[in-house]
Structures are given as structure tokens and as C-alpha cells.
Design a protein around this nucleic acid. Structure first.
Lengths: 249, 249
DNA sequence: GAGTGGTCTAGACCACATA
DNA sequence: ATGTGGTCTAGACCACTCG
């Protein structure tokens, strides 16, 4: 017995958008908007394929992408079930700027420093360049609603992209990197905490010794080349990291 | 022109292990052990399939699983390339206990509290139970090399599993949950920082006001049911979160 | 133009869960 | 016993990259 025979999907075979993607988008929309109730079964793949005039592998590909997103669960012998919804915020490699903007926090950036310097041992190791080689250094203060939120310190290999001060002030670093045609692939992150130094307390308007959240991140492009190494400090009173993660099956 | 014609793979069709999985495991091993050099091309899928006596979809499935793991990159018109390796530590829903054990840190647990109490508004919201309903509360102190590392406070729905004190002292909570036949699916996490309270400073052997890392986590099983809500505090001087994340393509 | 991955088809048989 | 997803095949055509 299958469910949801009544759901309508419209597939456009003349569209350049793949059929499995059209279907997964419409399934996702149906889940988000409640057309497919949490806990309900999706109906078996063979019927669904027949009803849509698609082959089973194509339907499976659509379903699989939603399983990977954590929206559906498949059980052999049982069926495909809509997961009882939780907040869906996958862990993404987003920039603080975009996060703040999406939250309506009116982000702004003050560029404190934009120069080159010889790579320290740690920066050199992260970026995969020789120690002492010239690397770009950018230091920024990130504000939200005019209040300081974080102190951002980034090192980049020289020649990777042309950073201009206006771009840095107007948007996030990741957007500039992507705009330069670089495909980001992965990042290594370390999140910790420590007490604010005197200098940081002045920059971030926190008392000296106040707890700060720290993040170090090395970002790689799809050739495995290190693109950026960041050492960031956030006001713990104003910011926390918030994300969802899925268990690898 | 394809590369790596010489690589040997042995597939066992009589094994219950799927062929695509046998292949992906052997490919991964070849990558890890350097048999497939970073940056090198894998050779096209059709030849590989023919050479192995498999169909192309099966070979694609094997390759895709490694792309999802971040080990390979596919480019249309170019080929499949081994990524220049970085540390491979995907973000997993692992327990602190397992992490410490894997790092050779000799973890230990002191169970401070194991009882039930009425759910506060926040706990009730996280677990999806009515406010004031009885929930299990477990408080533990986690040690490494005999030194306190973290204070762990977990709430669970009653009746979900039978926690016994011995199990809690001997291993991590997640292992007990999985051992009870529960399939973990996802978690929502918030990581922040704050200053140690007087009580925490005593428990964790940190000065009062010292920076602490905090994590709140709600874990869900594969039916979408909340299984556990944790409020944990880590000594920032001793611990940081460390993970890798992949960009969603 | 040649070579690559991306998509799609129409079947088949198997393993597992449930009644 | 039935129904489900899991795996696998042997093709096909298309879109993209690069020389």
C-alpha cells in the first residue's frame, strides 16, 4: 500500500535541469510545506517511477539526494519515510558576513590591515608554502548593528587573487575567493576558547580576561591547494557556532 | 590516455559485500597508501569498468562514495582526480570518550548524578516532551590521564534505555545508546564560551572566571525522535573542537 | 574532434522486514 | 508470502573541456 498518490509533480524533459533534480526539489518543497507529513511513507520507488514516467534509478537518485540531506530515511523492507522535522541547518562553509546578513544583523567590516609579510612557521605549514615566503595578511574587525563581533585575521598565498579594500569592506572573504573563480572544497577547523588580551579587549569592547571564542581554519580548493588560513576571535557574549550534523551511515 | 592501468583490484562476487563497496574500499586504501598519487587521474570510468568486469554504474557508485568523502574530485571533460591529501578527519557524531580513547588519553568517567527530574522548559523543548514531565538526568565528570576535562550534563526521555552506573563509568553515552538498538541520525549543536562559575572552577580545577568551552547538543534517532540533550562544559585550556567539513557541491 | 563525466533507460535478482 | 529497498547490468545520448 503506497501513500500520497495524490501528490503532483511536474517534470519538464526539455529543461536542462536534470530530471532527478527537478524531482528532488519538488519532493523537498512538499516536505518543507507539509504536503508530505513527517513520519509518512513516500510510496515505493517502482510505483513512483511508473507514475512519473521515469526509470527507477532516476527516482532513486532523487530520493538519495534527500536522504543525504537528512530529510528522508530509507529502510529495506519497510519503505522511505519522511523524517520528523528538526531545524534544518546543515553545517556549511559559510562566511560570518553571510551568516550575519542572513540573520538581519547588518554586518559591516573595518579593514584594519592589508599587507604582505613573511610567513611564520605556523602559517607556512597551513598554507603549504616555505617558511618566510611572502604571504598576504588581512586583518578585519567585523561589526553587527555597529557593535564589534569578531576580529578576523587571514593569511593567503600571494597571487591567488587580487583583494581590494573596497571588496573586503563590502562583503565576506569567501565571496571574493569564489568570485575569483576558485572552487572551495573543504576546510579544517579548530574551535576553542581563551581569555581576551588587553589589545583584544579594546578592539572588541570586552573586559580584559573575558572569554572569547576562537576559530582557526584552513580552507582548500578542489585541487587540494590551501587557499586561506584564518585565525579568528569572537566575542563569546555575542556569538556562538550553531550547526547540524548527520551521522555517516 | 588513462593512468594507473597497473593497479590491482580483487573483487569477490560471491561475497555479500557489494561490489561497489569492495571497489571503493580498495580505491581508498590505494589513495591512503600512496598507490594513487595526489593529483593523478584515475582513468576513465568506462575503461575501468571494462577492466574490472563491472558495469559503469557500479564503478560510478564506488567513485561517487569517495567523492562524497572528499577524496576524489570529478570534472566533466577532464577526469577523476585524487585530491591532494589533507588530514582526513570528517566531522562525526562521536563521543568525547571515544575521541579521548582514540588519542590515547586514558579517559575515565565519574558519575556525579543519575536520577530523574521534571523537565525544565528548555529541556522539554529540546526533547519534545511536556514541560514538567519526568526525564532522566545524568551528570558526569570526564577525566583524561586522571585530570578533569569536562563536565557533562545529559537529559534523556525516560524509558528510552536502561542506563546503569557501571556502563556510564566504563564507556561513553553514545555507545550505550547505540547498544540499546537506537540508530542515531543527526544532531543540532551550539558551541560557545563563557567564564567558569565558582562551582565549575572547583569541579574542573580551573580558576574562577577562566574561559570554558560550552556545547549544547540535541541528538535525534532515525525516526526524528530526540534521544538526548546535552549541556557540556570543557576546559578551554585542555580541549578544543577539531573537525573537517566539505563544501556541498 | 576526441575524450571525459552527467544523465537516463528498462529491465533483473537479492536481502530484509513484516504480517 | 508479500512488499520494500539494495544492488547490478548493458547499453544510450548529452554536455563539457581541451588540444
Amino acid at each position: 500500500m503506497s501513500t500520497h498518490r495524490s501528490l503532483q509533480f511536474s517534470l519538464d524533459r526539455s529543461s536542462p535541469v536534470p530530471l532527478y533534480y527537478q524531482l528532488s526539489q519538488q519532493l523537498e518543497a512538499a516536505i518543507e510545506q507539509g504536503g508530505l507529513a513527517p513520519g509518512s511513507l513516500l510510496g515505493n520507488e517502482i510505483d513512483l517511477a511508473a507514475r512519473l514516467g521515469l526509470s527507477r534509478p532516476t527516482v532513486r537518485q532523487a530520493i538519495q539526494s534527500l536522504v543525504d540531506k537528512g530529510l528522508l530515511v530509507r529502510r529495506r523492507g519497510v519503505g522511505t519515510q519522511v523524517l520528523h522535522s528538526q531545524v534544518r541547518r546543515p553545517l556549511e562553509l559559510s562566511s560570518l558576513y553571510d551568516d550575519l546578513e542572513a540573520a538581519g544583523q547588518q554586518p559591516a567590516t573595518r579593514v584594519l590591515l592589508h599587507t604582505t609579510e613573511p610567513a611564520s612557521a605556523r602559517v607556512a605549514a597551513a598554507l603549504g608554502v616555505p617558511e618566510g615566503a611572502e604571504v598576504v595578511l588581512v586583518e578585519r574587525l567585523r561589526l553587527a548593528h555597529g557593535e564589534p563581533m569578531a576580529h578576523l585575521r587571514n593569511h593567503l598565498p600571494v597571487g591567488l587573487l587580487d583583494l581590494d579594500g573596497d571588496g573586503l569592506a563590502a562583503t565576506g572573504l569567501y565571496r571574493l575567493i569564489r568570485a575569483a573563480g576558485i572552487t572551495l572544497h573543504s576546510a579544517r577547523q579548530t574551535v576553542g576558547a581563551r581569555a581576551a588580551t588587553a589589545a583584544e579587549s579594546g578592539l572588541l569592547a570586552e573586559p580584559e580576561g573575558a572569554p572569547l571564542l576562537t576559530m582557526e581554519r584552513t580552507t582548500y580548493d578542489d585541487t587540494g591547494r590551501a587557499v586561506e588560513f584564518g585565525s579568528h576571535v569572537y566575542r563569546a557574549s555575542r556569538y556562538s557556532f550553531d550547526f547540524q550534523l548527520l551521522v555517516r551511515p
